[in-house]
């Protein structure tokens, strides 16, 4: 789980082009949206692609994203339960 979280942080920084952010800057419980990392609606859609591409998870309803993408914590938990690759 620790490994997955670190991997996720790296991937998020990469796909969302968070230039001035490092893996060490993101705490597991930090809010990704809103005041946290300041991500927006396009970033949320991009995270849906990331789930599919890296972990073989297709969200049937994009509205699920809101709960899943709350923090690294919630994302990692969802991925470890649902990943197909």
């Amino acid at each position: 789980m620790v490994e997955l979280k670190e991997e996720l942080k790296g991937k998020i920084i990469e796909v969302l082009n968070l230039e001035d952010v490092t893996v060490g800057d993101i705490q597991d419980g930090d809010a990704l949206f809103g005041d946290g990392l300041g991500l927006d609606s396009i970033d949320a859609l991009e995270l849906i692609v990331l789930l599919d591409k890296e972990y073989g998870i297709k969200l049937s309803d994009p509205k699920q994203g809101k709960a899943i993408f709350k923090s690294i914590e919630t994302m990692a938990a969802y991925i470890s339960e649902n990943r197909t690759k």
Binding site: V15, L16, N17, I42, D43, L45, E46, V49, D52, K53
Partner: peptide, 9 residues
């Protein structure tokens, strides 16, 4: 086949 919304826009 993984179209990216951040690219498409």
């Amino acid at each position: 086949f993984f179209p990216s919304p951040a690219t498409f826009v």
